[in-house]
Structures are given as C-alpha cells and as structure tokens.
Amino acid sequence: MKAMVGLAVRSWSVVIPLLAALVLAVSWGRDLGPAVVVLVSAALVGAVLSAVSHAEVVAHRVGEPFGSLILAVAVTIIEVGLIVTLMLSSGDKAASLARDTVFAAVMITCNGILGLSLLVAAARRRLAVFNAEGTGGALATVATLATLSLVLPTFTTSEPGPVFSASQLIFAATASLVLYGVFVMVQTVRHPGDFLPVEEGEHTEHEHDELPSNKQAFVSLSLLLVALIGVVGLAKLVSPSIESGIAAAGLPASAVGVVIALLVLLPETIAAVRAARRERVQISLNLALGSAMASIGLTIPAIALASIWIEGPLMLGLGATQMVLLALTVVVGALTVVPGRATLLQGCVHLVLFSAFVFLAVSP
C-alpha cells in the first residue's frame, strides 16, 4: 500500500493550494462582498485540508520528531507574519493583538488540541500512552516562555500598564529564542527518543508503506508552504468580516485574536487528531506543545524587532482571568503528563479548560 505516497500526487491536494493562492492574489487589497467572503472561506477550508495532507507526506519522509516540528514551525512563522502585518496596518487598535493571539494559541494547543487528542486516543484504547520525559520537558518550556513573556509584563514597574520597557522586551525576546533553540536541539539531536511514540504496536502501522521520494517530499513541502500562506493570507482577508461580526455581536475586541488563532491552528488540530486516531499520541502532543512553544518563542522576538516600526504601546501582560486560566493549564498539564498515560478524564478536563477559555473570551 502506498497511501502516504499517494497523498503527494492526489490532484486535489495539488490544485487546492494553487487555487487558494490564486484567490488570495485576486482578492488581496479589495473590499469583499458577501459572495466573495464565502468563496474566500471555502478556499481557506480547502487550504487547511491540503496543508494537513502534504504535512503527512513530509512527516513520513523525514520521520519523527522532525515531521511535527516542520509543521509547527511553518505554521508559526506564517502566523507571526500575519500578526506583525495586522499590527503595522492597524496602529493603536492592535496594541494587544499579539498578546491575545499568542495566549489564544497557548490555550488552544495546550487544552484544545491536547485534550481532543487524549480523548480520541483514550476512546479507542482506554489509555492514551506517551513519553512523559519529552512531553514534560516541552510543557515546562511552554510554561516558562508564557510566564516570562505574558505574565511578567503585568507586574513590572519600569513602564505604566501591562507593557515591557525596551530592555525588558529585548531580554524576553532573547530568552524566548534561546529556550526555543535549546528545545529544538534537544528534540532533534540530543534526546530525540524522548519525543518518539511509545505505544505498543504504534510503530508498525506505516512501516511497510513505501517512503516518498526526495522529489515527492520536496513537492509536498513546497505545496505545504503555499497552502499555509493561503491559510494565513485568507484568514487576514476574512478578518475584517470577523471583526465586524464580533463588534455587531457586542463581543470584546480580544475575541478577534481567538478567532485568528483558531483559523491558523486548524492544520495542526486536524493533523494531531488524525495522529491520535492512529494511536500515535506522542505525535499529537509534539504538535500541540511544539506549536505553543513556537508561537511564543518566535512571535515575541519578531514583535520585539517590529516594535521599531510599530507606534504606540505594545501590551503583552495578561489580565487576572487569563493568568488564572494559564496557571490552571500548567498545573493540570503537569498532572496529566507525569504518569505518561491518560484516560478519558484527563482529555475531558483539558477540553473543559478550553471551553472555559472560549466562554470567558466572549463573555469576560
């Protein structure tokens, strides 16, 4: 069977990223009517599905943990570009956009994606088994990055409000890059075994599949990048409609960051759930925590650099409600990770935390 190789040559997975890029190019900079918004939304969904398809081809070729790392980093780099673009074009109105989007990404990945993956895996085998050493290290890194970048600005006194001074922002950016770089080295060079699946029989599912050739993997990687650019670009196109809808519904402006993060993280969500259905829980956790880590570790340095051109305050500090949710997420995550296995209960707890985050985002 050559299912994974077939993904690289399916006509829909080749055509849709190119079609999404075409829709993006034609629609960019234009006022979108209702019919065009529907078309753009359809192209967005297609780009998400094709991105997952090509990510699986690349992951099958390079193996783990490189496969999940490539998808997480690719999505995050383009997400950072979207955040910086929106902040540069929106001025003071986007002062808290980076904070809202990054915090939403952490809650979506560490509760939504992680909880859904555990729930799906535990429903199939009663227990979701994973590597506690690697997953615990990833969670500790996420907690440290989130605290340094999103919690401390609320309590520092050099500048009024939940903002960093210039030197504090440089320190947070440098620390984020260093921590993320060290984690990637540990994951891929020093201790890659800590991030490989441990479930019995998990390694045999695709071991007889023919590996994609280098050419097929390169084509899929190129189309993956095109699809991800389409996802983020199309998300930006529909963001004015999202903002208008949120304002018309009387919801807080911070909900915009939540919706953007949900759209951008769709490829990783689908990929993680599919991995969990195949009893590859560790891959799901690599995607979830790796995305959270990359979202902070790459966004904060990029924002620090972009602050040279961004006028107005850069609000990074979380409010009290958000800090409570973050602290609860870290504590519950640690209790989930330590045993190296989880049941339906742990999956449901994380999903309830994710639901609480969404509810409080729209009804603070």
Results as ranks from 00 to 15, higher is better:
T144Q: 12
P162F: 01
T156R: 04
L287P: 09
V198A: 13
L262K: 08
V15N: 10
L22T: 09
H208G: 03
V142P: 01
P65A: 08
V102K: 05
L328C: 11
T144V: 12
I170W: 06
A247L: 07
A143F: 09
A271F: 08
G340D: 14
I310D: 14
L266H: 10
V38N: 02
V9T: 11
V37G: 07
V84E: 01
I283D: 02
I296R: 02
A128T: 08
A302T: 04
Q216S: 09
A306S: 12
V163Y: 10
G233E: 01
V238S: 09
S165Q: 01
I108R: 11
D92I: 02
L211R: 13
A173W: 05
R278T: 06
S117E: 11
F218V: 13
S117D: 15
L326D: 06
A272C: 08
Q168M: 13
Q216G: 00
T204E: 15
L7T: 06
H60R: 11
L119P: 09
P240G: 11
Q187S: 15
V102T: 11
V80E: 05
Y180P: 04
R341Q: 04
L351K: 09
G6Y: 01
A294R: 06
G137C: 05
G181K: 07
T157D: 03
S117G: 06
F218C: 13
S149D: 04
A288E: 01
S50A: 15
E159D: 03
L211N: 04
A35W: 15
S89V: 05
L114T: 08
P153Q: 14
P160S: 07
L224E: 06
V330T: 08
L228K: 00
E199Q: 11
S295C: 07
V331E: 07
A55K: 06
T109E: 14
S89M: 07
G112C: 13
T101S: 15
S11H: 09
G312H: 14
A25P: 12
V232P: 00
